[in-house]
Design a protein around this nucleic acid. Structure first.
Lengths: 199, 199
DNA sequence: ACATTTGCTTAACAGTGTTAGATTATTTAA
DNA sequence: TTAAATAATCTAACACTGTTAAGCAAATGT
C-alpha cells in the first residue's frame, strides 16, 4: 500500500506550508508580529501541531535562514555568470547582494540579525558558505601577485562585506536615506576596494 | 515647606534608578531578558509604578538611546581633541566610535538596532546629531576644493559610517572574528577613504 | 469487533507589556 | 486631634507570547 508515501508527501506539504505561512506573516506584519498561533491560523491548525514539524520557533527561523542563503547564493551566482570580465563580475555580485537585501528584506533581516533576534548558533551553515566561497573566488581571481595569501583575500572580503552590509543595515534600520547617494557610495566604494586589491 | 522639592528630587532619583536598573539587567542578561517586572524587582517596586515615570517600555529605551548618544558624543569629541592634525583627528574619531561600540555594546545595539527591536521614531534626536556633526566637521576640514559641497561630505560620511558600522554589526552578531583582521580592515579602510576625499 | 496507533485539539503554565481598581499612607483642613 | 482629600503603591486582570501535557476522536492493524 502506497499510503505511506502519500502521508509522507502530505507531511512535507504541511512542513512547507508552515514555512510559507511564517514568511507570509513576516512580509505583511514584520518579524515582531510572527507568532506560533498566527502561523497555526494561516495553515488552519492549532499551534501545538507545529511542534511536530519543528522543535520550536527557532527551528522555523533556522530553516528560513537556510532558504535565504540558498536564494542569495543563486542570485549572486547568476550575477557572476552574467559578466565575463573578472572586475565586472565582482561588482555585479555585490550589487546582486545589495539588491537581495532589499528585495528579500525579511530574509536578509533574519540572516544577518538586522532588527531580528536570530539564534546565535548559525555558525557553520553550509548554505551560507556557498555565497562566501563565490565571493572569495571572485576576489582571488583579481589578485595578480602569486601565491595568493589567505590573509589578503580575507581582508578584502571583509572590507567589501562590512561596507555593503553596513550600508544595508543603516538603510534597513533608519530608512529614509537617499537612494542616489546609496548607489553612489556602493559603486564608488566597490571600485575603490577593487583598485586596492593589488596594492 | 521645602518638601515639594524633596519629593521632586526623590522622583528624579527613582526615574534614574529605573534607567540604571534597565541597563544593569541588559548588561547582565542581554536585551531579550529585559522586562518591566525585572526592572521593578531591582528598584524594589511593582511594575505599574514604572508607568508613572515612562509612558511605556519604549519610553525607557528612548531615554537610554539618548544617554548612549551623549556618551558617544563625549568620546568622539575627546578623540578629536587628542590630536592636532586633521587626518589624525578623523582617524582617532572613528576609532573612538569603534571602541564605543564594544565597550558600550548594549548602548550601541540599542542605538543602531543591532539585534534589538528599537523603536522606529528615533529620527531627529538632537543627541544623535551632535556626533554626526562632529564627523561632518572633521571631514570638511580635509576637503581642499572650495566651495565645500554638501554632497561630497555626505558621501564620505556615509562611506565611513557604513564601513565601520558594518564591521561592528558583523562582529556583534556573528562574533568570533579575528581582532587583528578587524583592526587591519579598520585602519587601512579609514586611510583609504581619507585619501579619496579630494579625488 | 477490538486494540492500537495516529492526528489533532483543549487546557494549562510561565512569561510578556499594560491598565483599572482597590488599598494603604501621607498630607491637608477643620 | 480628627476628618477629608490626595498621593503613592499594590493586586488583579487582560490579551498576548512560546511551549507542554493530557485527552479525544478517527483511522489503522489484528
Amino acid at each position: 500500500m502506497g499510503s505511506k508515501e502519500r502521508i509522507q508527501r502530505q507531511k512535507e506539504d504541511t512542513r512547507k506550508s508552515i514555512l510559507d505561512a511564517a514568511l507570509q506573516i513576516v512580509k505583511q506584519e514584520g518579524w515582531a508580529a510572527l507568532s506560533m498561533r498566527k502561523i497555526a491560523d494561516v495553515i488552519e491548525y492549532t499551534a501545538p501541531i507545529i511542534y511536530e514539524y519543528f522543535s520550536n520557533k527557532e527551528g522555523i527561523l533556522f530553516e528560513l535562514t537556510k532558504q535565504g542563503y540558498v536564494h542569495l547564493g543563486i542570485k549572486v551566482k547568476a550575477a557572476r555568470d552574467s559578466k565575463e570580465n573578472a572586475e565586472e563580475q565582482l561588482e555585479a555580485m555585490w550589487l546582486a547582494y545589495w539588491d537581495f537585501a532589499f528585495e528579500e528584506k525579511e530574509y536578509y533581516q533574519l540572516m544577518y540579525g538586522v532588527q531580528v533576534n536570530c539564534c546565535e548558533l548559525y555558525t557553520k551553515m553550509p548554505e551560507a558558505e556557498y555565497t562566501t566561497d563565490l565571493f572569495y573566488d571572485a576576489i582571488e581571481k583579481l589578485i595578480t601577485k602569486l601565491p595568493i595569501s589567505e590573509d589578503i583575500s580575507c581582508l578584502k572580503y571583509y572590507t567589501f562585506w562590512s561596507l555593503i552590509h553596513g550600508l544595508i543595515s543603516i538603510n534597513l534600520v533608519q530608512k529614509g536615506a537617499n537612494d542616489e547617494i546609496n548607489q553612489q557610495i556602493l559603486r564608488s566604494a566597490i571600485k575603490a576596494i577593487i583598485k586596492t586589491i593589488n596594492d
